[in-house]
């Protein structure tokens, strides 16, 4: 009984390789969808730009009639969409795994609201601009997250208490945002939409840089804890028994996820339900075949690209991406609530 049958051991190894292969195929498929979405964003707009022209613009050539629209309007939009999509997807799924509840995503428990409120306040009231806005937003997002964590602390933190306190916090902050926006001297509906639902309209290339940096730094940090996070899916006790430092992992994950989401929020607003939707969809696609962190990030990017496309071209009138993800997310959300409640289960 000591070494295990070699045949069984080989079967175990084969099963593991099969799962790893399936996981790689899923990720490759998602990457392809993201690339297709980017290509679509670059080619389509008020006018159609042929792929050849797009390629020439991308390689730096001057193409009359296309250089400006593709290079200055559509490229930043596509790049920003992918980056914020990945940030929201990764940050959201990290929260969902950690709290073992798909409904416990940062947009529902008030973290996104906090970041958004700070950005609104900084822009509307303090008239700030440039790199200070993401900084304020990150500080507020972290502050709100830590405050929620501290308030939920009572002989340790339980997921249920954390979520409920987050919901209360979100209600308060949302009322604050509505109030500040109503007091804005020049009420610009487009600008307000950004802070209420999120939008990639008017994206500029320099907005993408902070999002890219935060994605690399904090996303990397999150991925380095991927294995501990996976163990946490079995509950804190089981994870601790496996040698996971539960407290440390929690704090790392919260800080990394909040920073990523706050930076993304500061540039495009809290895109509704994005953080919440990406994880469950990715988990559906990946199944039991492996970690859902990277697939969730890619799913987030897909959702932004597709949602933005729908909002711009497929609906009567032009809607910001947040309205589309919010409306599309609602039925899925209801389905998910029903399923979670039925099974009482985790992500």
């Amino acid at each position: 009984m000591s070494a295990g049958e070699p045949a069984l051991s080989a079967a175990v190894a084969a099963g593991r390789r099969r799962r790893a292969g399936a996981w790689r195929r899923v990720v490759a498929g998602l990457v392809l969808i993201v690339l297709a979405g980017v290509a679509l964003t670059l080619m389509l707009g008020q006018s159609f730009t042929p792929p050849g022209d797009v390629l020439r613009v991308l390689t730096g050539q001057e193409v009359p009639g296309a250089s400006f629209t593709v290079g200055h309007l559509r490229l930043p939009r596509a790049v920003l969409s992918v980056l914020v999509g990945m940030s929201f997807g990764l940050g959201g799924v990290a929260f969902q795994i950690m709290l073992r509840n798909p409904l416990a995503s940062p947009d529902i428990i008030g973290v996104s609201s906090g970041a958004s409120a700070a950005a609104v306040f900084a822009i509307v009231v303090l008239q700030m601009d440039g790199p200070m806005v993401p900084a304020v937003s990150v500080a507020a997002g972290l502050g709100v997250a830590l405050l929620i964590y501290a308030l939920a602390w009572k002989d340790g933190v339980t997921g249920a208490r954390l979520i409920l306190i987050g919901i209360g916090m979100a209600a308060m902050i949302d009322s604050f945002i509505a109030y500040v926006l109503s007091r804005a001297p020049s009420w610009d509906l487009q600008e307000a939409m950004r802070w209420l639902t999120g939008s990639v309209n008017g994206a500029r290339m320099e907005q993408a840089l902070p999002v890219l940096v935060s994605l690399l730094v904090f996303g990397g940090l999150l991925l380095s804890r991927a294995r501990d996070l996976e163990a946490l899916r079995m509950g804190e006790e089981a994870a601790a028994a496996l040698g996971v430092k539960v407290g440390l992992t929690r704090v790392t994950v919260i800080v990394a996820a909040v920073c990523m989401i706050a930076v993304a929020t500061a540039s495009v607003g809290p895109i509704a339900f994005l953080a919440f939707l990406s994880g469950p969809i990715a988990s559906r696609i990946v199944g039991p075949n492996g970690s859902i962190l990277i697939p969730a990030a890619l799913t987030g990017a897909c959702l932004v690209l597709v949602g933005d496309y729908i909002g711009q071209f497929l609906l009567p009138g032009r809607y910001p991406v947040g309205v589309v993800t919010g409306a599309l997310g609602a039925p899925y959300l209801i389905y998910l609530i029903i399923r979670v409640n039925r099974g009482g289960g985790a992500l």
Partner: peptide, 23 residues
């Protein structure tokens, strides 16, 4: 330690669950 009520991640297979023990 085997806790009293451990939670299996949804859809996880037995082989995958057992391999989590290698953490």
């Amino acid at each position: 330690l085997l806790p009293q009520t451990p939670v299996a991640p949804e859809g996880i297979t037995v082989a995958d669950l057992v391999s989590r023990g290698r953490h």
